[in-house]
Amino acid sequence: MLFDIRTIIGALLGCYGIILVITSLVQDTAAQSVKTGGLDVNLWAGLGMGGAAVLFIGWAWLRPVRVPEPHEQTVEDSTPDT
């Protein structure tokens, strides 16, 4: 599960989401509120990315990739049909 692409994408989205939420809490200025019409874009984008990260990691956890077992060749399988 560690090298599954869904886990990597979920981890990256989660990290970016945390950074945006922290940025929203620390650097919320009046000038930014005027630009966005009073909407805290960093907070909502961070929460959206966090939700997407939960979905990706949940998807990888609930439906893991299964590697098929190699087919064992028996003596009967190796003889040609005549």
Score class of each variant (00 low, 15 high):
42 N>D: 04
50 G>P: 01
36 T>C: 04
7 T>N: 13
62 L>E: 06
28 D>F: 01
7 T>M: 13
33 S>E: 12
81 D>T: 09
23 T>P: 02
59 W>H: 11
59 W>A: 06
59 W>Y: 14
12 L>Y: 08
38 G>Y: 08
81 D>Y: 07
2 L>T: 11
8 I>K: 13
82 T>R: 11
30 A>F: 09
78 S>I: 06
35 K>Y: 05
40 D>L: 06
81 D>C: 05
24 S>P: 01
60 A>T: 03
26 V>A: 07
63 R>Q: 08
11 A>M: 12
3 F>N: 09
73 Q>Y: 10
78 S>F: 09
50 G>T: 11
61 W>V: 13
48 G>M: 08
70 P>A: 08
1 M>P: 01
13 L>S: 03
9 I>T: 10
60 A>M: 09
18 I>C: 00
46 G>R: 02
49 M>H: 02
79 T>N: 11
35 K>S: 05
57 I>V: 14
66 R>E: 07
67 V>P: 00
36 T>R: 04
76 E>M: 07
79 T>C: 09
52 A>F: 10
15 C>Q: 07
9 I>D: 06
37 G>V: 10
31 A>L: 10
30 A>E: 15
43 L>Y: 06
66 R>M: 05
32 Q>M: 12
28 D>M: 04
71 H>Q: 15
60 A>F: 08
3 F>L: 14
11 A>W: 08
15 C>W: 14
66 R>L: 09
48 G>S: 15
67 V>L: 10
12 L>H: 05
49 M>Y: 06
58 G>L: 13
54 V>E: 03
51 G>R: 05
6 R>Q: 08
69 E>H: 07
46 G>P: 00
8 I>F: 13
25 L>M: 04
61 W>L: 13
74 T>S: 11
69 E>V: 05
70 P>S: 04
26 V>K: 06
64 P>T: 06
33 S>W: 05
82 T>C: 05
27 Q>Y: 13
46 G>I: 00
63 R>T: 08
75 V>H: 02
63 R>W: 09
18 I>E: 00
73 Q>T: 09
66 R>S: 06
39 L>N: 11
5 I>S: 12
28 D>W: 05
56 F>P: 01
31 A>P: 01
32 Q>E: 14
73 Q>D: 02
27 Q>P: 03
22 I>Q: 04
29 T>I: 02
4 D>H: 14
26 V>P: 02
31 A>N: 07
71 H>K: 14
44 W>N: 03
57 I>N: 02
78 S>D: 07
3 F>W: 08
5 I>K: 09
54 V>M: 12
61 W>T: 15
59 W>M: 09
10 G>L: 04
72 E>Q: 12
16 Y>G: 12
8 I>Y: 05
76 E>Q: 07
38 G>Q: 06
65 V>K: 12
39 L>P: 00
70 P>M: 06
50 G>M: 11
51 G>K: 06
5 I>C: 04
46 G>H: 03
67 V>D: 09
58 G>I: 13
32 Q>R: 08
74 T>D: 01
30 A>C: 03
44 W>E: 01
30 A>N: 10
61 W>Q: 07
17 G>P: 01
21 V>C: 09
82 T>Q: 11
56 F>S: 00
34 V>M: 12
69 E>L: 12
26 V>Q: 04
56 F>C: 03
33 S>D: 10
66 R>I: 09
15 C>V: 15
11 A>E: 07
33 S>P: 01
52 A>T: 01
29 T>P: 00
63 R>K: 12
